[in-house]
Design a binder for these strands. Sequence first.
DNA 1: CGGTACATTGAGAAATTTCAAAGTTGGTGG
DNA 2: CCACCAACTTTGAAATTTCTCAATGTACCG
Lengths: 252, 252
Amino acid sequence: MALNGIASSGAVPSVTNAASIHASRCGICKLRDSSFCGALFNGTGALLTVERKQRITPARQNVYRAGEINDGALLICEGWAVRFIQLPNGKRQILSLAMPGDLISPASILEGRFAFSVQAVTKVISCKISFRDVLLRIRQNPALFDTWIKLTAAERRQADMQLVDLGQRNATDRVAALLHSVLLRQEERGELMNDEFAFPLTQQQIAEFTGLTPVHACRVVAKLRKGGVCKVGHGTVKVLDRFELERLASLR
Amino acid sequence: MALNGIASSGAVPSVTNAASIHASRCGICKLRDSSFCGALFNGTGALLTVERKQRITPARQNVYRAGEINDGALLICEGWAVRFIQLPNGKRQILSLAMPGDLISPASILEGRFAFSVQAVTKVISCKISFRDVLLRIRQNPALFDTWIKLTAAERRQADMQLVDLGQRNATDRVAALLHSVLLRQEERGELMNDEFAFPLTQQQIAEFTGLTPVHACRVVAKLRKGGVCKVGHGTVKVLDRFELERLASLR
DNA sequence: CGGTACATTGAGAAATTTCAAAGTTGGTGG
DNA sequence: CCACCAACTTTGAAATTTCTCAATGTACCG
């Protein structure tokens, strides 16, 4: 599981140019045929003409800081990232989880600045596609426009469910809902083996997502483990009772 | 204040056709020049060719029920509506507030069904614009496309702040943030007089928005009143200490 | 003038947070 | 290979916030 990695803070992530990217990354990317990325690069020669920058961000470092000028759509190629808002008092709320192939906040794709930050959970390889190219292609390509609208709507649905979770549901259900949503996403990617899947979030990050304190998140995770629902830790989740996990995660 | 009104549940809202609408409503609408509505109807003759249905929904009735087939973008012309998700256990989470001129969930504009419901808080006049016309105009009119992208991004920002509120902030701050956001929206509309503005939500609805119980929402509102911050009730909010309200509502 | 929905209050229970300390783990350098 | 360090996890106990239940008060509509 090459998902972990700790880095000293403050280092500047490396940036490669489009030329080296083509040879080294996008050309062999497994994700090319799915998601926004695939739709964007679809069509003859498109890959060569889309301007993009790829960079590597070590785990725990920021991919983007709230308020910075942003000049393109941000796509996660490898690793996990979280989109979050940092409060002056030090608390953070994680707004969404980005996995390989995910676009960071489809709805915000053409914004010049974001109110949120993006942090690498594991080592992350990300890719930035210039506004010019995104707009050009969205305008030209009805299928891409369609894909983007669907992604935006899906993002809204996801946010709505998260609001329901935070507003109406207890700690256990919220954590179960998080685990279950990742289970489904990993299953879709074929990354589920023996009811086990990669889950590199720390308890601190689970807490930041679910609006709990790390201590309480720990207790909830312990309860799920003792209840024989699933084991969470060491970068993975092992589902022991999927039926119960689904029951907890479901609205009821 | 023509904001209140109780209706027996179950009645079927009335529907008028486009012809009568033009004469009776849209032609004289104050909102025509702002927001999505204005952009949509912009251009010669557009008003006459956009297919739309206007209807009146009494207070407390649903404008839309989760899961129903939806055939057009929903616009609020008059009154207040809430977008919410109903849980099987009877609880509800209000996801957003729609005021005159607001599009219901810009991000979901082309979805055939919604997971959320929409309920009239006051008597509501709403307008539905067929997918065909929305798409046609968005494709044809770059300014409208732009407006729509901006609305979608704003909706996402709003959802993000709501997630922060529900996940990280206490009851008082959440209620203050709600009141403050409505204060700003009313101010923008020029509906603020003597630091007082229309606010037709019941405490039950404040609770559903902020993820509190009605009883606790009542206590918070009482605390704000006793603290000399603002008086909430009888369909209005009177701001007594705007500085303090802004301090409570701000992230800190 | 009722009636119904809405608002308020009190008291006790439950969920969650806070604070503090001790255990674990994984990576690093000797 | 081992020892150590830093970050992460676990546990306990007490404080705080929020909820629940139940009763009473209030405003508005017909």
